[in-house]
Design a protein around this nucleic acid. Sequence first.
DNA 1: CGGAATCCCTCAAGATACTG
DNA 2: CAGTATCTTGAGGGATTCCG
Lengths: 231, 231
Amino acid sequence: MTNQHYGQFCGLARAAEIVGQRWTLLILRDLSVGPRRYSDLVAGLPGIPTNTLASRLKELEDEGIVERAAPAGAERSVVYALTPRGQELGPALDALSRWGAGGMRTPREGEIVTTSSITAALRVAAGDGVVPSDWDTTYNVRVGDIETHVVMRDGRVTADPGLLEDPDLEIVAGPGIRNLLAGTLSPQDALATGVVQIQGDPALFERFAQALHVPYSANVAEPQPAASAAG
Amino acid sequence: MTNQHYGQFCGLARAAEIVGQRWTLLILRDLSVGPRRYSDLVAGLPGIPTNTLASRLKELEDEGIVERAAPAGAERSVVYALTPRGQELGPALDALSRWGAGGMRTPREGEIVTTSSITAALRVAAGDGVVPSDWDTTYNVRVGDIETHVVMRDGRVTADPGLLEDPDLEIVAGPGIRNLLAGTLSPQDALATGVVQIQGDPALFERFAQALHVPYSANVAEPQPAASAAG
DNA sequence: CGGAATCCCTCAAGATACTG
DNA sequence: CAGTATCTTGAGGGATTCCG
């Protein structure tokens, strides 16, 4: 029983045997953004032991979920990518992300964001990725020292790591940008309070907030509030 | 770091901290079928250590995902149920179930099915649960010694544990019924090969197969085939 | 330098017994 | 019935070393 078998002929049990392994969901999240080298994964998953990462990658490869791209020719870097079977996990990862996002309020002590986490969050926030086809807007989004960009074009919205050369709008924020995307903070208030700073047309910022949404669950129990009458 | 914190302000990471715990997904699956007593859970999760179950239930209660129903009056049995926040996990559990089901072929050595696993699978197989509103059909479904029933009525299809008194169709099968629901085995072949036995109108059996579908991934890598030229 | 394998240690989880 | 107590095991955390 190496890999946590539950002994049940059940789709959820089979899924749990894989995504229930520590770090696996985050590895899959990073790979869902795009192919990554081993060192990229190490950098994007602070705290992961290198042997655990190596084990997970091997297991996922054995399961047909991840593939190693052979270091062809002068390229001396092994690249890991999701297989088609791995990509089929997308809807499940999205659903889990939404659920988890719905329960997020403020970052816990020491919690960080990574390029992959922001990019994945923006993609999930884009939902089906459909926007009005006459939108043609590019955004650079910086959260802390993380750099990503969003493009709305041809009726689609996409999010990817890195910055664009000459975006229509520059957005700089902290993790509090989550409240904007959750709808608990209006674009106007986000700017007025300084939670988000922009450089460019504020109308494009409203468009940004209009196209991207993360859930906000009303059913979250607050962990031990001050003993008096809590909201 | 008791409960596997990943240190990332990310919905998926937060979700992983909960559903990544061993047994948690299966506990949630069982509770998603309906409220359960401690002993029900123990019985439905063969192999779970009782202290692990107790820990999980406590953690899930602390997270606001599960609630203990107080043993009111003469009832001396504690009942666990999903909170609204726990029910919000439904789409994620369904997505994971579908993905896992897509990778299932035949049961591994010793794998079993449980009442909750079958019931949950039938619910997932029902998709959005919509059927033609003129269908009014009841089924008893036995898989091994597991007893469940399916009702199609008022345009909805539901699945629940236990048997009905006088169903329109009795279905008896093994885990191979999965191939019927996956579409890799026709209702006719299922009957002809004896994979499924029915008692009642075969047309109702075709309706059953028509309304319930589990995924079947074409992208599954078969585990270590004979060493020669593998697909 | 990127991509791991190895070592050691801790703690979560497995197994079983026992109690309110 | 609903857990707690105790002991054991092994996966995973952390650092270092090795290899190509």
